[in-house]
Every structure is written in structure tokens, then in C-alpha cells.
Design a protein around this nucleic acid. Structure first.
Length: 950
RNA sequence: GGGCGAUUAGCUCAGCCGGCUAGAGCGUCUCGCUUACACCGAGAAGGUCGCAGGUUCGAGUCCUGCAUCGCCCACCA
């Protein structure tokens, strides 16, 4: 690659890192070079992540940025480890959510989807999709996501469509999907059934109304009931449903009501006679102990009705207005009806009491409308049969969760799983692959036909298919302008859209409903890789490696992928489920567009750079925990990128026009202490990062690199290197190879977290290094700790030099020595004289000491008007002359002595404890003994110093 | 009603198998434009790790109970 043609190589390094001048260019460099595509490597296991597909509903929010960050870190890490690595991006059609946003858009034009008709409406939604898909993909790119864009999938693409139909057919053939009339959650605003998981529960203050139902004491000649004084009082939170009551239930064990079981009551207003029944589900302590049974609108009541054998009355229309069963209340909205009914009951003397009662109500997770439980014909998937293998897979450890605790949550849900209502009365989504034959079942298909010429207010024509045809309405007109229900007809289930029914008829009506979005999502690890076809991709990448997503969709998504993966191909979809938390804003609020509490990730990228955002997201919290995104932290991330940039700028400018050769072998024993030290430290860092990454402790790994780069490499090694390259220092080996080597290691370690700045620097640095192996950092091997540079002795010795520098600096600051002024100092270090002597030049420069006297013992240093710092292995003595303040020095020493005494006392107490000596590991005891000795030495030194002051 | 998580410096959080003299960033204070970086450097102050018990030689870390906040699950109308 030539220098001019290389889009990733900056011509010169600016004074500070500018993400805006870098990120797009570097991303294009990676993408055009094809680095995001998997590279074959037989020696390594494949690594694959299927990206959770964001909804096409709009732009990405910070939660997606967290997903991208975590996944991209894992992907980049594995790519650098040499694994064949694939990250599959995708987008979700998000049935109900997308339909809602497009309907909202239509509403602004004064239109409903019914004004457009199904086909035209779908066209509108596709326009929306076409607009947002590229926006979303571009946002991923801005965040640095190294996904293989050539493999991007949309949930309504051809293959996922076929996957959905294939699964549906298989479930149907196995008897695991069925059509039935069940009690479901109905959203009156979205006008569709919902699964249990799409209902959110909210606590709300409400009332418990006590209503009196008179007991029937006889009938007249025509059989009309007659009531007396006696009555039953029921307690309810939903008085408006009394029109649908079919019984009053009491607990059979309830002495108060036992003898009333078998009698009947008369519903006020409605004048319907209903029985008093006994059922154990009735709580004696609650309310009056008598329960009005409304099986059409309450799941508990429904079960009672099933047990006792009661009819079911549906009193509600699909828009939550009362229907004709409600008599005088027909046509009223449910809440309006509540008020009117309460007023009537009160006027008629049937309302006995009202008491406040808090309750939990279900609301639609998409629009927050109160959900209505009602009986409805829907398609259901039997979950029990699918659940067992999915339970086993987690129990036996084939699938593990990070963090572990989510395993129990998953299992608990799986073990109590209930059937899944999968049909949705929407227009946007995977249409259920079921057809009805009008030729064979024309009398059993109920059709509602809206004549487009008649205007939208005209009443629809209803009847069976055959009846409508008899009225001259054509099959094509029905297809275009009608809805139908084939609950009594025979379903024809097929993968390919059938042309004819089994009996040969050509008039087919496909099921109106679409499938729950999560039905196709549950197939995602399979359908993205080509299933139901047996593709090379499927064989290579399935089962995938890690499923990384938010813990909030364990049931909605993760559980279903596991069930369906095992059901379809008998294999788990992935072996690790890594769950991240919810991103909140600085005030701990959930991100919400409607509340205006959302944060646009691209605005942060624009201002601080993608690397800063990524670093912040990954270090702000641990796996599974929520995090608050604060701008200050992003700023810190930005500063870190800049720090790295400038450290690199220094190294590169030092190399100048020439090039440098990296150290090839262990540093020889004679090489400078600081070289052996930093090489040992970087080796330790590499090992630790490797370990943390392996445990999915990505944030901890990033923090460790940060600490190293800033606190050790920049603060100490670079500062020392400056001294070394200056002319006034005795000549020795150049620090350049070590500088370049350590920087290069850091860039590799950090690349998964901060890909842009590291690649940009690396390209510049690589040009200065002889025999650079890979052509880009993104594909450079990730360090794993095999350099052999570990050197505990060097680390100990260097720690002493750092201690001495710090001690002198501390004294200088406390005594207010002018920063620029050089002062004389002594270091007494009997055993470590050589070490200090070797580091003399660094201590002198870094602590601004000149001259530095290295002596054997404190006795060889001045005693009067000096400040002393007693360190482990050395004592620093700083003569202060005019700056010396006896009282202040006494105070300073007394405080240090007190601290040292406390510490020595604590350790001594521990060591004196017989139990500790008997039971603690020898290594710990030895450490404690060393620490005690050190503390005592320090204490002695400090005491002696104080005594001398007297 | 059941379960889970959080509670550590003024703020936001680390502290992963118990050995800590409890860390970081931001903020605060005192200095300093020293030719990589003021998106910086040097130094400092600041915490009885929510409360109460317990296990242990040793507990921020494990156990029990409680409190506060948050979340999830759940058919008491």
C-alpha cells in the first residue's frame, strides 16, 4: 500500500486528536478493504454474533450504541485473535411498532390505514422502511460497528419469510400451533390481540364498588323472577362489566353464603337471572366474599365459568365500547359506561359502598392503552413442548448466561410458560401462511365487505362468502376490500403460496392476520444464516457464539430463539447469552423519545467522537447492570483518546525521519531499569486484559489499559524517556524501541474498545517501525501475554524510584518550594544505593533535585532544617534552610507517625492472633510479616526524625 | 404475593473465587503555560463501604434479618 493512496494514514499528527477528521475516513478504509468479512482460519474456532435487529421505527438511541459497543468489542477482539469472525447486522420490521408510527404519520394527513386499504398502506410502510434502513446502517457505521454489511438481513426479506412459513407449517404439522377461541389481551387502540409479554402492568389507585344483587325468591306464572329483601353484595373494580355477569361465586367453605349456593339473583337493570355458585377461587377475605363472575372479560372468571359450566357473554366491541349485550349501555365507551352504570345503580339503590382500592391494570406496551381481556379466535403456539429442551440446554450448561443470575430468571419463566398468542390483527408483518378455500368452504367463511364506492361511513356488507358472491360481489372485490374469518373453515397451511385448494378450487383467501413480530425474531439466528436452506453459512456459523442483548427481552426474544432453534434444527442457537443493562440519562431516567429524555448517540459522536462514547459506555457499568450516561464521563473518554494521541505524537516525533526496530528478545540484563520495568508492566497488563476479556469483563479490561497508558506509560516511562534522549544525560541505549513497542501493545489492547483513534495512530506508527507485519491494526494479532518480559525485580526497584520522586515532590509542594527551582536532596538507601544511583538522572529531573546525594544512611545526610520522607527501602532528606518551619515539620511528622503506628498496630494484632497464624495461608502470613517490618522501619525512621527536631 | 438488583468519597461508578493501608473519573483546594498533551502536569483534602446480627484467623466482598430506591414476574375480583 502506498502512502498517498492510504486513506487511513494522516499526513502529520495534529496537536490534539480530532475524531471528526478521522472516523469516516478510517471506517471507509476498513470497509473498502473488506476487513469486516470473515477470514478463514482452520486453526481457530469460528466466532459469530447475530446483531439484535433494531426496529425500523426510527433512529438508533444510546441503548443501541451500547449493544454495538459490546458486540463490536467482542467481534474485534476475536478477529484479532485470528478467529474467523462474522457479525451479521439486520433490521426488524417490528410489526405493531412500525405500523403505529406510520399510522401516526398518516394521521397528520388526516388519514387512517383504512382510507388507504391494505395494499396501499403496506406500500407506505415500505417507503418508511426504505428511508430508515440506510439511516440505521449509517448510524452503526458512525459508531464503528465492524459488521459484515454484505450479510445484512431484514426480517421481511425472502429468506426470513420462508423461514417463518416453514416454522409455521412444521408447528402446525406437529400439532403445536392451533387456532382457538381463548381469552386474550386486546388493545382497543391498536385493535389487535397481544401476547402476555406485550402487556405491562401498572399500579393504579382505583375503587372497589359494592353492588347489591337481589336474590330471586320465586317466579310468577309467566316465569318472571320475583325478588324479595334478601340480596348478595358483590365487590368489583369494574362495575361496567356487570352486564356480562353470568353468576355470583362464593367460596363453598364460606359459612355466610353456603346455603345460598344454588339460588339465583337478578341483575339490576338488565334483569337477567343468574345463579349463585360455589368456587374455591373466591377469596373469603376479599371484599364481601362474593364475586361477580364475568367470564367474557376476566381470566379468573373465565376459569370459574369453565369449572362450573356457565355461559360466556361478550359485552364489548373491539374498540372497547359496549355491544348490544349491554342493553341500554350499548355503544358507550367502557369508561363512559362505568360512570353511567354507577349513577344508575346508585339511583336505583344497588350501589352499597365505595372504597378506595389500589389495583394493577394491564396496558399495551406499545401505546399504554388499558388492555381488555376478552374472548377471541386467535392462533396459539403450544409452548410447553418447546420449552423442555430449552430448559435442559441451560440446565446442563450448553448455554450459559452472563451474568449468571439471569439463568434463574430464564428458567423460572420457562418452567411456568403458557401458550403464546401469535396472531395479530395488523397489516404489517408476516401474514399467516394459512388459506381458506372459498370453493369448498364458502358457507363457512364470514366476510365483511366495504364497498369502496359507498364511502367510509357506509355500513359494511356482512355475510358468508357465498352469500356475498350471490349478491354479485366478485372474488377479486372481496380480496381487495374485505376482511374474513375462516374459523369454521379448514385451514390450508403451506410454505409456498398455493394456487389451488386440495380439491382443486382456485378461490383462496389468505388469513387476514399477521404474526407477532417476535415469531420471526425467534428464528433470527437461523434465518439470517439462510435457514430453512442448508447453506454453507448455516453450517459454518450455526450455532453462533454469543447472543448479546438487553436483559429486558430475555423472554420476548432470547427464550424464543432458544426454543425455536432447538425445535427447528435440534441445536442451540448460541452458547453464551451476554446481557447488558438499560442506559439511562444523567438523572437515572429511562431513555424515551416521547418524554424527551432520550440521548442521540450521534450527537455525542459528533461532539466527542465514537471512541469516547464507546469507552464511556463500556466502563460506566458492568454486565447486566443499568448505567447512567453522563456527559462528564464521555468527556473523560475523549480526554483519554487525546492522551493516547499525544503520547503517540511524542513517540512518533522522537523517531523523526528514521525508523525504529522493535525489541526482538528479552531485554538484556544490562538494559535500563525503566525499560525492564515498563516491559514487565505491559506484559502483566496483557495477561490481565486477556483474562478479563475472557470473562466478559470488558469494562474492567478497558479501565486497566487506561490506567496503564496514563498512569504508567505516559506519567513515568515517557517522562523518563525524555530525560534519556536529552543530550545532557550519559549516553545509553535509545528508549525508542521500547517506546514504540509499548505504545504498539497498548494500541492493540485498546483497539476493540477505541477502534478509530487506535487505528489512526497505528497507521502512523507502523510507518516508523521496520518490518511491520499486518497492514492494519484491525487485523493485527491481539496480545495474549507470551513475551517473557515479566520481571518482578525491575518492578520493585522502579517502584522505589517512583516513591522517591513522589516523596520529594510532596515535600516541595508542602513547603511551597517554587516549582521551577532545583533543590538539593539526599537519599539514604543502604541496600538500594545502586538502584537510586542508576536512576539519579530521572530523580533529578522529575523531582527537580540538583544535586542528588545518594548516601548509605540517614546519618550521612544533614539533620538540621530538613524534611524527611521515610520510604520502604529508602529515606529522602530534603534540606529546607529558609523554608523550614519547625512547628509545621513537627506536625507533619506527628501525623505520619500516628498513621504508621496505626498500621503497624493493626498488622501486629493480626500476626499475634494465634488463629491467623494457624489458619491463614503461608503466603498471606509472609506478606503480612513483610508489611509489619516495613511499617516498623518507617515508624522508627519517623520517630528518629521527630526526636532530632527537638 | 414471589423474585432480582442497587445502596462504597460532594456527584457518577469500579472493586469479578474473602487478605485493602478501599480505587477511578468528574468536582473541590494549592501550585504550574516544563518544546506529546491545559482535552495538560505536580501535590492535597475527602469514605466507620445503607443498618443490625452472624460465619471466619480475617468481611466492602459470604450468610440472615431490616430499611430505602429500582426492576421483573404474578388470576385476589
Amino acid at each position: 500500500m502506498t502512502q498517498q493512496a492510504d486513506p487511513a494514514r494522516p499526513s502529520e499528527m495534529a496537536k490534539s486528536y480530532d475524531p471528526r477528521a478521522t472516523e469516516d475516513r478510517v471506517y471507509r478504509f476498513w470497509e473498502t478493504r473488506g476487513y469486516f468479512k470473515p477470514r478463514p482460519n482452520d486453526a481457530r474456532p469460528p466466532f459469530c454474533i447475530i446483531m439484535p435487529p433494531p426496529n425500523v421505527t426510527g433512529e438508533l438511541h444510546v441503548g443501541h450504541a451500547l449493544t454495538d459497543t459490546v458486540e463490536d468489542i467482542l467481534i474485534r477482539w476475536h478477529r484479532m485473535l485470528g478467529d474467523p469472525t462474522l457479525w451479521v447486522p439486520g433490521v426488524d420490521h417490528a410489526g405493531i411498532a412500525t405500523q403505529n408510527v406510520v399510522e401516526k404519520q398518516l394521521a397528520k394527513e388526516g388519514l387512517t390505514r383504512h382510507d388507504l386499504g391494505r395494499e396501499e398502506f403496506e406500500r407506505r410502510v415500505w417507503q418508511w422502511v426504505d428511508r430508515y434502513r440506510p439511516i440505521i446502517a449509517n448510524q452503526h457505521r458512525r459508531l464503528g460497528a465492524s459488521a459484515d454489511w454484505s450479510s445484512e438481513v431484514f426480517t421481511l426479506d425472502e429468506t426470513p419469510q420462508r423461514a417463518v412459513r416453514t416454522l409455521f407449517k412444521k408447528l402446525h404439522d406437529d400439532g403445536l400451533i392451533y387456532r382457538g377461541e381463548r381469552m386474550i389481551n386486546w388493545c382497543p387502540r391498536c385493535r389487535t390481540a397481544l401476547s402476555d409479554l406485550e402487556v405491562e402492568h401498572e399500579d393504579q389507585p382505583g375503587n372497589l364498588w359494592h353492588i347489591r344483587y337481589p336474590i330471586v325468591d320465586g317466579h310468577d306464572a309467566e316465569g318472571r323472577p320475583h325478588v324479595g329483601e334478601d340480596s348478595m353484595v358483590v365487590a368489583t373494580t369494574r362495575p361496567e362489566t356487570f352486564v356480562g355477569d353470568v353468576a355470583v361465586a362464593v367460596n363453598p367453605a364460606d359459612e355466610r353464603y353456603r346455603d345460598r349456593i344454588g339460588r339465583t339473583v337478578l341483575l339490576p337493570v338488565i334483569q337477567r337471572e343468574i345463579p349463585i355458585v360455589g368456587d374455591e377461587a373466591t377469596e373469603m377475605e376479599f371484599g364481601t366474599g362474593a364475586l361477580k363472575v364475568t367470564p367474557g372479560h376476566d381470566p379468573v372468571d373465565f376459569e370459574i365459568a369453565q369449572r362450573v359450566g356457565l355461559p360466556i357473554i361478550n359485552v364489548m366491541n373491539l374498540d372497547a365500547t359496549l355491544n348490544t349485550e349491554a342493553g341500554p349501555y350499548a355503544g358507550m365507551d367502557r369508561y363512559e359506561a362505568r360512570q353511567v352504570i354507577l349513577r344508575d345503580l346508585e339511583e336505583l339503590g344497588y350501589l352499597v359502598k365505595v372504597e378506595p382500592h389500589d389495583m394493577t391494570i394491564g396496558v399495551c406496551s406499545r401505546c399504554h392503552t388499558v388492555v381488555e381481556p376478552l374472548m377471541s379466535w386467535q392462533w396459539f403456539v403450544n409452548q410447553r413442548a418447546l420449552a423442555q429442551p430449552a430448559i435442559d440446554a441451560v440446565r446442563d450448561g450448553r448455554i450459559t448466561f452472563v451474568p449468571e443470575r439471569f439463568e434463574r430468571i430464564y428458567l423460572n419463566w420457562m418452567e411456568n410458560i403458557r401458550d403464546w398468542c401469535v396472531s395479530r390483527q395488523l397489516w404489517w408483518g408476516h401474514r399467516i401462511p394459512v388459506w381458506y378455500s372459498a370453493d369448498d368452504d364458502g358457507d363457512r367463511i364470514a366476510v365483511t365487505y366495504r364497498d369502496p364506492a359507498a364511502g367510509s361511513n357506509a355500513a359494511p356488507i356482512t355475510g358468508t362468502y357465498n352469500e356475498l358472491r350471490a349478491q354479485g360481489i366478485t372474488h377479486e372485490q372481496i380480496l381487495a376490500h374485505a376482511t374474513w374469518s375462516g374459523v369454521e373453515a379448514t385451514p390450508i397451511v403451506a410454505i409456498e403460496t398455493p394456487e389451488r385448494s386440495p380439491s382443486g378450487g382456485g378461490h383462496l383467501l389468505q388469513e387476514n392476520d399477521v404474526l407477532d413480530t417476535w415469531f420471526s425474531s425467534g428464528l433470527w439466528p437461523l434465518s439470517t444464516l439462510g435457514w430453512p436452506d442448508d447453506t454453507p453459512a448455516l453450517r459454518t456459523w450455526y450455532p453462533t457464539s454469543v447472543m448479546e442483548t438487553g436483559y429486558d427481552i430475555i423472554f420476548l426474544w432470547v427464550a424464543r430463539m432458544i426454543m425455536l432453534g432447538l425445535y427447528n434444527v435440534g441445536q442451540i442457537p448460541y452458547s453464551v447469552v451476554y446481557l447488558h443493562g438499560t442506559v439511562r440519562n444523567e438523572h437515572g431516567q429511562r431513555m424515551s423519545k416521547s418524554l424527551g429524555t432520550g440521548i442521540d448517540p450521534l450527537e455525542i459522536v459528533e461532539q466527542y467522537g465514537a471512541d469516547a462514547l464507546r469507552y464511556t459506555l463500556i466502563t460506566s457499568s458492568g454486565p447486566g447492570n443499568d448505567l447512567r450516561l453522563s456527559e462528564q464521563r464521555v468527556e473523560a473518554g475523549r480526554n483519554f483518546a487525546n492522551k493516547l494521541w499525544n503520547a503517540a505524537r511524542f513517540v512518533i516525533s522522537m523517531i523523526g525521519e528514521g525508523t525504529v526496530r522493535l525489541p526482538e528478545a528479552l531485554p538484556p540484563a544490562g538494559s535500563p531499569l525503566e525499560d525492564r520495568w515498563i516491559l514487565s508492566r505491559v506484559e502483566g497488563l496483557v495477561r490481565s486484559v486477556d483474562e478479563q476479556m475472557g470473562k466478559f469483563e470488558l469494562g474492567e479490561a478497558a479501565r486497566q489499559v487506561y490506567e496503564f497508558v496514563w498512569g504508567e506509560f505516559a506519567d513515568w516511562y515517557i517522562e523518563i524517556a525524555k530525560v534519556r534522549v536529552r543530550a545532557d544525560v550519559p549516553s545509553g541505549p535509545s528508549p525508542l524501541p521500547v517506546l514504540a513497542y509499548v505504545l504498539e501493545r497498548c494500541l492493540r489492547l485498546l483497539h476493540p474498545v477505541m477502534p478509530f483513534v487506535t487505528e489512526e495512530i497505528w497507521q502512523a506508527l507502523a510507518a516508523k517501525i521496520e518490518d511491520t507485519e499486518p497492514e492494519a491494526l484491525i487485523v493485527a494479532p491481539y496480545p495474549r501475554g507470551e513475551s517473557g518480559y515479566a520481571d518482578a525485580g525491575a518492578e520493585r526497584e522502579m517502584a522505589l524510584i517512583i516513591d522517591v520522586v513522589r516523596a520529594v515532590r510532596n515535600i516541595r509542594a508542602e513547603k511551597k518550594v517554587e516549582p521551577a527551582r532545583f533543590i538539593e536532596a539526599y537519599v539514604a538507601a543502604d541496600g538500594a544505593r545502586g538502584v537510586i544511583e542508576a536512576g539519579r538522572a530521572y530523580v533529578e529531573t522529575l523531582a527537580r533535585v540538583r544535586p542528588l546525594h545518594v548516601v548509605a544512611s540517614v546519618a550521612d545526610a544533614p539533620r538540621n532544617q530538613v524534611a524527611k520522607a521515610v520510604l520502604e527501602g529508602a529515606t529522602a532528606v530534603v534540606p529546607l534552610a529558609g523554608l523550614f518551619d519547625l512547628d509545621a515539620e513537627r506536625g507533619r511528622l506527628s501525623k505520619l507517625i500516628a498513621e504508621a503506628e496505626a498500621e503497624a498496630g493493626r498488622i501486629a494484632a493480626k500476626l499475634d492472633n494465634a488463629g491467623f497464624r494457624a489458619k491463614a495461608p503461608a503466603k498471606i502470613i509472609a506478606t503480612e510479616e513483610e508489611r509489619l517490618a516495613a511499617a516498623r522501619t518507617r515508624l522508627d525512621g519517623l520517630r528518629a526524625t521527630l526526636d532530632e527536631l527537638a
